[in-house]
Design a protein around this nucleic acid. Structure first.
Length: 464
RNA sequence: GGCGCGGUGGCAGAGUGGCUAUGCAGCGGAUUGCAAAUCCGUGUAGACCGGUUCGACUCCGGUCCGUGCCUCCA
């Protein structure tokens, strides 16, 4: 078995992945806050950790991949106030849209997709414990984690407390004992219907952002677990605070940052046409919109075309490239469409697996995949086709029928009859060497978006 | 100011201390009535300056440029 290597943000090194329990690998990735449509950056995270889970499943007998839905957050409250739509309706709607959009991108549902609001009890229990052990305190209806109580704080992002305070963008609430302290629980207005809340030992209120992931990871995976992931921007403060909360409970170890999660994996950002995605620039690219214009596999391939830790520039041109690559692969597959292969796929080809095992080097893996497709088309054997399919399955691309994907013979009945009649007429013209007429028909078809290919078995056509 | 990442051929984007990345585009060829599709061939790349070395795109140091994060953020 090829050893999986992962860049561990905690140690800033590429390390061999050694599972805590080889019989059961456990992974957690921070999922979306469901107040709006997922953008292409959310999609990148979902696709990357989907591939990572696939790689792990190929190597270990049991993998549990947990990715949460954040359905309690001030951004959701704001969205609800703005649209006058009930909060629960918003979160339910956007959770469904998220899952459906991700499915279109070939992302499997995580094994467990916990919702924050289903884990309020666990969060309250955890906060209680942190107060009892002196790591948290109640102040002005808030509960805050006291950062100076955790000596190792800052180990993930590599910053010490003095530097942070020097950053000076910190808004210092008067009730904080230390400027770096962060909220575990905050009050909600019981008379305000828009503001959700739960009863707690500290009054009616709602959890802070970071505590949910600590609670859900502990609930569904247990501590310590193997891999924790998310977008690079979550490293600080979100993941740093998760570590603080979890290491300071009885399940963790205050002196060991890895007592929460052993490997930390962070994916890079997506830019759009060279610019940072932001609301003010108006260039936030939504997965939902892309799906209606492009095939899911094209978008997925594009998302995997840069290494996960590198920035990815999302451009019209890059989508076109990805589409061309997919087309090339499917053209190869079309030549071997009739070759039957067993449902039980052979082992994943070594060179391909090696690329993925090298810190999930998907660009390299894609180049191997293209080579495997070419080899399969050349060999025309079930073995070569099976080898390709085994690799493609891991990336979850090239899973459709080649002819269909490429647009051969596609269209409604009336359309097909018209095209077939024209193709037939052209064939007759060609037999009679009336090339003027046959070329004329070809141009007519092209205008209809139909491309003609003359093969030894006769003329075929496809929609472009 | 602090912490981090990166600068590779026309474009996108990897590996690698000496040997083809790959894809797209381009060029040449095969095939075709012409195309399309496919196949074959084809590129004196490595921000700059030093250093280490028999040899550096690859290691080390510096310079320049770009970029991310520093309690909204995937």
């Amino acid at each position: 078995m090829t050893t999986l290597k992962l860049h561990n943000s905690l140690t800033r090194k590429k390390e061999d992945f050694v599972p805590i329990d080889p019989e059961h690998v456990r992974i957690y990735a921070c999922g979306p806050t469901v107040y709006s449509f997922a953008h292409i950056g959310n999609a990148r995270m979902a696709v990357i950790f989907d591939v990572l889970a696939n790689v792990l499943r190929a190597q270990y007998p049991k993998v549990t991949y947990v990715s949460n839905i954040t359905d309690i957050d001030d951004k959701i409250i704001a969205a609800s106030r703005q649209t006058s739509e009930p909060l629960k309706q918003i979160t339910r709607k956007f959770t469904e849209i998220y899952n459906s959009d991700m499915r279109s991108l070939g992302v499997s549902r995580p094994d467990i997709q916990p919702r924050a609001t289903d884990h309020i009890d666990q969060m309250i229990a955890m906060i209680k414990e942190l107060i009892e052990s002196g790591h948290a305190y109640e102040a002005d209806k808030h509960v805050l984690f006291h950062v100076p109580s955790f000596e190792k704080y800052g180990g993930l992002s590599g910053r010490n407390r003095d530097e942070q305070i020097a950053g000076a963008r910190v808004e210092i609430a008067s009730y904080k004992k230390d400027p770096a302290d962060f909220v575990l629980w905050k009050p909600s207005d019981e008379d305000d219907e828009d503001e959700p809340g739960w009863h707690s030992p500290w009054g009616y209120g709602r959890p802070g952002w970071h505590i949910e992931c600590s609670a859900m990871a502990q609930e569904h995976l247990g501590l310590p677990f193997d891999i924790h992931g998310g977008g690079a921007d979550l490293k600080f403060p979100h993941h740093e605070n998760e570590i603080a909360q979890s290491c300071c409970t009885a399940h963790g170890d205050e002196n060991d940052l890895a007592s929460f999660a052993k490997y930390w994996v962070h994916n890079g950002f997506v830019t759009v046409e060279g610019e940072k995605m932001s609301k003010s620039l108006g260039n936030v690219t939504l997965a939902h919109d892309l799906i209606s214009h492009h095939k899911g596999e094209t978008l997925r391939l594009n998302l995997l075309s840069a290494h996960y830790r590198q920035p990815l520039d999302w451009t019209a041109e890059s989508i076109e490239h990805a589409k061309n690559t997919m087309e090339g692969i499917y053209q190869n597959l079309r030549e071997i469409e009739d070759i039957e292969i067993s449902e039980d796929l052979p082992p994943v080809p070594e060179k391909f697996m090696k690329a993925l095992c090298d810190d999930l080097n998907t660009p390299k893996a894609i180049s191997e995949l293209v080579a495997l497709a070419k080899k399969a088309a050349n060999d025309k054997t079930p073995e070569s086709k099976g080898a390709f399919m085994a690799a493609a399955k891991l990336l979850n691309v090239a899973q459709e029928e080649p002819s269909r994907w490429l647009g051969y013979g596609k269209g409604n009945l009336r359309e097909r009859e018209l095209i077939n009649a024209l193709v037939e007429e052209r064939s007759i013209a060609r037999l009679r060497k009336n090339f003027k007429r046959s070329d004329q028909i070809r141009d007519e078809l092209l205008e209809m978006g139909i491309v003609i290919e003359d093969t030894p078995e006769g003329t075929i056509w496809k929609k472009v």
